[in-house]
């Protein structure tokens, strides 16, 4: 564990608490993509399957994995059941097949061994890198977003961005690298570039998140 990864994980935790806060305080899931949230459940369940297969990394690792699976399922419940009436499916129209299909193909092509769990692990890494697409698509379509929603997306983007110095640090100190995680992580962070530009130049200056018309 190094400081980059620790702060990356903390940003990831923070993103979930911000999301819960947004839903519960505004009593609404307006502006959120249910599809993105479903994709995160798929990502966590397929990657953290090793919890149930006897792989033990650390107490920290296990607690975080359980938290991410549990909280992402709870968010689906909030969006699907408790605040269902505030969700607008006509805005959330990104076709997830375009994300799941290619991720599955990439998982089958690039993995560390051709076994069920390794393919699923690899699939989850690729799917995570693009899971934010439906959410960014809603921002693009509506051209604006609530400030708290942009804090959520920013925290999520910062999480994977901090994994990049973590990998560089690990390469120097441990001498090895995980090419699948690194390539997907770079793509994932890159997808946030436009969003971050508007976030840093508008939201953090106290202005509303609005895309140029």
């Amino acid at each position: 564990m190094n400081i980059f990864r620790l702060f990356g994980d903390l940003a990831h935790l923070a993103s979930i608490f911000i999301l819960l806060q947004k839903i519960q305080v505004s009593r609404s899931c307006r502006g959120l993509s249910f599809k993105t949230q479903v994709l995160y459940v798929v990502v966590f369940v397929s990657r953290y399957l090793d919890l149930f297969l006897g792989t033990w990394v650390s107490f920290y690792n296990t607690v975080m994995k359980l938290f991410f699976i549990g909280s992402s399922c709870y968010i689906l419940y909030l969006m699907r059941v408790q605040f269902r009436s505030t969700y607008d499916p006509t805005l959330d129209t990104f076709r997830v097949e375009y994300l799941v299909g290619p991720s599955l193909v990439l998982g089958l092509l690039f993995n560390y061994s051709f076994t069920f769990t390794e393919i699923l692990w690899s699939f989850s890494i690729f799917l995570e890198s693009v899971a934010i697409f439906p959410q960014l698509f809603i921002l693009q379509r509506t051209g604006e977003a609530e400030t708290i929603t942009t804090h959520y997306i920013a925290a999520l983007g910062i999480y994977r961005a901090l994994y990049i110095p973590n990998w560089i640090y690990r390469y120097w100190t441990e001498g090895s690298a995980d090419p699948i995680a690194i390539v997907a992580g770079l793509v994932q962070t890159g997808l946030y570039a436009d969003f971050f530009y508007v976030y840093f130049t508008k939201v953090l200056q106290g202005k509303r998140f609005e895309l140029p018309a």
């Binding site: 792989t55 990394v57 650390s58 560390y112 061994s113 692990w121 995980d178």
Partner: peptide
């Protein structure tokens, strides 16, 4: 499993 650094990451 085990190959690849990412296995101990989240």
């Amino acid at each position: 499993t085990g190959k690849g650094r990412g296995k101990d990451e989240l």
